[in-house]
Design a protein around this nucleic acid. Structure first.
Lengths: 202, 202, 202, 202
DNA sequence: GATGAATGAGTCTTCATTCAT
DNA sequence: AATGAATGAAGACTCATTCAT
């Protein structure tokens, strides 16, 4: 087997990452053994280790891959014009996150919880993850700026604080869904609309 | 040998749980070994095992203990009369959660993340945790009912959905604080007030 | 099993080191697996690792233990009074080394070769080993001083260089015996006497 | 495809053996992996395996090659006429061995130790090595015969025993140099001269 | 002839748990 | 009741060798 093509390499990597996520979701990051992943990926130990040097590397890559996939889905929403209302935005993001779940046994919400937990004791992961969330929050602050100019938010509103609240609402949706399993994007949209009070339209 | 007194037993249990949390926070639930906990607790392996039959038992007890302590702190807030505004309520709860952190190296936010993550693959823990959060959300729904009667929320508001949004906001605060480390209860209060628009006062 | 006595601890250590040398001699330092040593020692993996933190530690301890045992046997020879002649000294040392071999399958010569080889790539071992040989060579230089005063060596003799030659002779005896298996202490004594020429007596 | 020329084959073999020795010296025989050698030789795994069927083969060839190279250098010394004195002979051999070291990172002394150690558990290597050393010792016995005829050694001298002592001195020089790193051919020559007593000249 | 990706048995080490003292 | 030495199954990772391309 001489040099493998780049496409094939990428496909193998994806194959391993898929196997990893199947296992991680079922048993958690730590309870999953390399043996589990190797078995699930239908490759040999050596093959898996030729793509990821260690379990830690694999965990890192798996979390970052999920984050990247999420970013790709979120980007369009915060760039729509005209922008949705706050409750509309949150509802749309919640929908994207929920949709991810549907995809063949891949539950973004559970994955997110595993990643956050891991990041508490894994410096490399925490740094990378911080970068992701801070960048996304910056986009939300931009959105808040537009809302202000549109008169949806008072002039005294803090774009930074509004962005933090919106981000919290999204992260909280993920947690609550994962734990109680009974929260829908619609309910979140309705609840926010009720709270915001005005008969906001998307 | 004479039986040990109940007080002593309870003190020992607490001593072990404290040791466990010190370790869990530093290294996570799985990377923490029973040896770590045994060493930190200044007891012998046998002693620790006479209080908790297994590591899983200890993890379960540790998470539930944190949850109980949190409940005790949260209860008064949702029972104040007159009730705070939505943003005031969230700010107060965020303050309680943040205060927990101050206590000698005990960070409730990080602990919460570990517990949520573990609950994804630990049925006993998930059930117990669901019970806790659903009960708390019921209290929030009661609060939303009062808000409605007070005219703070429209008649068409769904108490259940508002409760979900408030809970998400709190859970999201925990996640965002743990990851980015730059969110304060005041900012969350301000951001919510900006979003809700009316110059609500607590 | 509460605290084990110091004697028992020492006995266990010795039991493990014995097992290690049996394996090392049979298969070499690297081809010997911890599993081999564990099996031979009739202990469990955990027990062995509670005495030696790693294979490297065990190798180090094994080599140093052999060196210490050798020192104890050599010490008396270089302190005899009156001192033997050069060829007598070498013969006596060679005898001690050969005798070590007889002891239940324990061959000091083969062990020495393994240790020297390992020291080429193991800094800790090399340093410790250097200390041992340099100290022993100092004793040989002392002996050479006495020989000079006794008139056995010319006034112009370099005690340091004579010590180096004597040490080489001993080390070389070990190597040659291990490889060809046909060198006796007597032959070495005779050969040296022939070379030195005078009909030296011990 | 056309067969590769014999010259090319020999060059490739040498290239692999050189790479092997670079690695062996740095990390020892066992710690060196085939991957190390393959990488260092700038060839592919398949290429290396087409020249040496196994790691053991490569180790054997590497050791024997060193031995052959040494023999070529030693041969002239024991055939000089007139022969040097015993101390002169040892000094000249020590010089040859030391000179080998100078050659771009190739240290014959360390290599010798690795080979001797390996030979303890590798029958093929031990047999071949014995053959080499016994043959060389025979040459030394021949030299001792000449010394006897020249009157440098007493009539009662045992040529065999003198050869053993000379060989030991050389082997010991290798060991002592490798371990302490502070022995020169001159010191060995001087020490032997001191010991032999007569003001021997080369 | 040459390549280097893939294999998988085997290595060292850890750690939850037990139980003789 | 308390101790902590001992157990041994299991985990992460390596590496000599092969063989499809």
């Amino acid at each position: 087997m001489p040099k493998i093509s780049d496409d094939k390499r990428a496909a193998r990597r994806a194959q391993i990452l898929d196997a990893a996520w199947i296992c991680f979701q079922k048993n958690g990051l730590h309870a999953t053994t390399m043996g589990d992943i190797i078995r699930t990926s239908d490759l040999s130990a050596g093959a898996v280790y030729s793509y990821f040097a260690s379990k830690e590397d694999l965990v890192f890559a798996a979390v970052m891959t999920s984050l990247s996939a999420l970013r790709e889905r979120l980007e369009p929403i915060v760039q729509t014009s005209p922008l949705p209302s706050p409750e509309g935005l949150v509802r749309q993001i919640a929908e994207v996150i929920s949709d991810f779940t549907a995809r063949d046994g891949y539950d973004l919400k559970r994955i997110a919880l595993l990643g956050w937990s891991e990041a508490q004791h894994n410096d490399r992961l925490r740094i990378a993850m911080q970068g992701f969330y801070l960048a996304f929050r910056d986009r939300l602050a931009d959105v808040a700026g537009v809302w202000k100019r549109e008169g949806r938010l008072p002039d005294s509103a803090s774009e930074r604080d509004v962005a933090k609240v919106i981000l919290s609402q999204i992260l909280g949706f993920v947690v609550q869904s994962a734990i109680t399993g009974d929260v829908t994007p619609e309910q979140v949209g309705k609840g926010m609309a009720d709270l915001i009070g005005a008969a906001s339209k998307d």
